[in-house]
Design a protein around this nucleic acid. Structure first.
Lengths: 148, 148
DNA sequence: AAGAACTGAAATAAATATTATTACAGTTAC
DNA sequence: GTAACTGTAATAATATTTATTTCAGTTCTT
């Protein structure tokens, strides 16, 4: 899985857990440890698809436009990573049956594999991810520590 | 999908279509358009798992040790690519719930996705790939042309 | 109106990952 | 003994990913 998917899911989860608030690319950058320029670039994709709204200028940032439980991971996969499961298959020898046809063959097989992956990912929403993230123990511990 | 998988499947298919013959890394290199040293390296993985035999020295090369219909693509995936579906998730902010737990969460989800992918790939054998490759039209056409 | 705090986007640089190349020791056939 | 192979390590070249810099445009605040 490429890291744009991770970054998009991470960002959406962050926004889901800060409902009704504008989050700046800097804030998201601090959570993801990814450069704010890249955050803005990837979140631009989500904006174009209507998942988030952005506001420029002072007090601006990013905010969810959809209900977290309505966004399936397959939608994010499609936006950021569709096609990445399919092998690249750099040009092989066209004068060999195998070389000439391997690409088409694997593209067909993995096209179906990707469809199946997408229907698997459809079983998880951003809200599910947010809940899973909150259920994990690591933060509770560090929160307790930082509150001492 | 990483290219070691492609190279391994391509090589096994090549060997399946040249049964009982030793194929050199150079011959496979010509079909795959990949450097022979890399062919030898990847095929070394398949040898360690017993899928092929190699013979050093003059007249040596690679030869299948199993029946093509008995080798599922999931086996090759496991050897060459297991874990690649799971997002890398470079270290995020441990002081943010999301940053601290996204990696575990996605690893869990994609661990299951990968299991599902493997069972999908189990539906295809090297023999299936060989048949699909032969069924494609491109070679027939170029063969006809070169035989004129 | 001016300045501070933002996004959008392009261009460049740095870092990382992949692939090819070179080199050579060891093996086998003739 | 020599030619034709594999195995493996080290290095170089290339491609991809990620970060950085820069700046124009927008919005809020005073």
């Amino acid at each position: 899985m490429n890291s744009e998917f991770t970054l998009a899911v991470h960002s959406l989860t962050y926004l889901a857990l800060h409902p009704g608030q504008m989050a700046t690319s800097n804030a998201i950058s601090e959570s993801t440890a990814v450069h704010p320029v890249r955050v803005r670039k990837v979140l631009g994709l989500l904006r174009k698809q209507g998942y988030i709204a952005t506001k420029e200028g002072c007090g601006g940032g990013f905010i969810l436009q959809v209900k977290p439980e309505d966004v399936g991971l397959h939608e994010i996969y499609k936006i950021t990573s569709e096609g990445t499961l399919i092998p690249k298959c750099t040009p092989a020898n066209p004068d060999c049956v195998v070389g000439a046809n391997m690409k088409n063959t694997l593209t067909t097989i993995f096209g179906n594999a990707e469809k199946q992956l997408e229907s698997f990912l459809a079983g998880y929403s951003i809200n599910d991810v947010a809940m899973l993230v909150k259920k994990q123990p690591s933060k509770q511990i560090s929160e307790i520590v930082s509150e001492l």
